[in-house]
Amino acid sequence: MLLKKIRWTLKRHPFLYMSRFRLLSKNSNEDAISSISYNDWNNKKEIPKYFYDINSKIFEQGKPDSDLEVIIQLSTWLCKHTKVGPGLSEPSAKALETMVYGKGGVCSDMAQIFNNFCVINDLKVREWGTTSAPFNRANGGHSFNEVFIKELNKWVMIDPSWGMLLYNEQKEPLSVLELYHLSRMGQTVSSYCFIEGKTIEDSQLRKNYLNSDITPFLICEYRNKTYDRYLNMARPHVPVFIIHFFVYLSGKSYHYKFPIDDYKKIFS
């Protein structure tokens, strides 16, 4: 129990949290990130077999014709067959297996496995995170996804942890950047939870999306195969932040792109 507490403290310590942003953050703009996707660095042939096994269960009755319905069905299945718990920081197949058996997983774990399911279903996907600027320890941030929906010809934000889409006043699904622009202009943003019997409190929406100090960043160049290899070799004996630092030194680390705010506001 003491060892677990020490590991949790190391993982969540503000110094490590802020150090990660200092090392990995880059300012960008909306045009520069418009075509970036997780698929750019992750080939469907490199996704572990376990994802294909679970995918066949998710779509055992057939796959919908529209991209939007595919991601709703995918997210619905994951919400119904996984449970929230401690952060995992495991190789992707192990993380999926642990979540399916109800032994843990946080929003970043869900977002990462959702990425892999989109890749094997030929959907362009990417992962976003949020933090507060300036940094607020009370808000640990959030992770979610965005999928390019071909029939709408646009990126659409989806939160697979909550089974949720967000819409504007015209009932059109929002991209991540549309969401934050509307929020900052004080315009109405509505949520749609497609998980039967599940509700999302307004306080949760404000915390994750609608507070004025929340800033989004795009997670780029995450190579699932690379992190699987390092995590398989070193977990659980080596702390996760040390594993990630070695990947960083190898030059194959992910990084964060901030398209609408200067990331240095985090440290002010």
Rank of each mutant, 00 (worst) to 15 (best):
K49I: 09
S28W: 09
K94A: 08
I72H: 03
G129N: 09
R12A: 09
E30R: 13
K57S: 02
P134V: 10
T130Q: 06
F21T: 06
P14F: 12
F21E: 11
S66I: 06
T76I: 04
L96R: 00
S34R: 13
A111E: 03
F117E: 03
E69C: 01
E46K: 10
R126A: 07
G104D: 11
H81Q: 00
L23F: 12
S35M: 11
L24M: 14
G104N: 09
K45R: 14
N39M: 08
L96G: 00
S132G: 13
L16A: 10
D53T: 08
Y17C: 08
C107L: 07
L16E: 14
L16Y: 15
K124S: 12
N43I: 06
L123I: 05
P48N: 06
D109I: 05
E90I: 01
R20D: 15
S56T: 14
P48C: 06
K63N: 07
H81K: 00
C118N: 11
G105F: 00
L16F: 15
K26F: 10
L23M: 14
S66M: 09
S34G: 03
S34E: 12
V119G: 09
A32D: 14
L74D: 03
M110P: 02
I33A: 02
G102F: 01
I36C: 09
S56H: 10
Y52S: 11
K44E: 15
I58S: 05
Y38Q: 08
R126G: 04
G105S: 05
N27G: 07
L78A: 01
Y101V: 00
F59N: 04
